[in-house]
């Protein structure tokens, strides 16, 4: 079996993260990631990076989102 290139491995890791692989292809990719420590580390660290940014987002969630003043905007448009 032909050894996958780094780009192919990265693409596969991203497809797993994005939930784009299903059935046998997903099982095969997960097995590949499990058996290759470097790929496993890459998969975990990319996933963790995304998790960290989602956690950071929650901090912004607690900030009040301003109201849109439609009447004022209409007045500005008239000018």
């Amino acid at each position: 079996m032909k050894k996958p290139t780094c780009d192919e491995i990265l693409q596969m890791i991203n497809q797993v993260i994005d939930g784009e692989l299903h059935g046998d292809k997903l099982v095969e990719a997960e097995e590949f990631i499990r058996q290759n420590p470097e790929c496993g580390a890459m998969f975990r660290t990319i996933s963790r990076t995304i998790d960290l940014y989602r956690q950071r987002r929650q901090e912004v969630d607690s900030v009040h989102v301003p109201e849109i003043d439609w009447e004022a905007l209409k007045q500005r448009l008239k000018k």
Binding site: R57, D61, D69, W70, R76
Partner: peptide, 28 residues
């Protein structure tokens, strides 16, 4: 939209302005 603008602009004040500006452009 506000969160995306905040991440793009880097601060809350500008994100607020982007939100208002978006509404204005959309109306226009």
């Amino acid at each position: 939209m506000f969160r995306i603008a905040w991440k793009m602009c880097g601060n809350q004040d500008e994100a607020e302005e982007v939100l208002q500006e978006t509404a204005l452009k959309a109306l226009k």
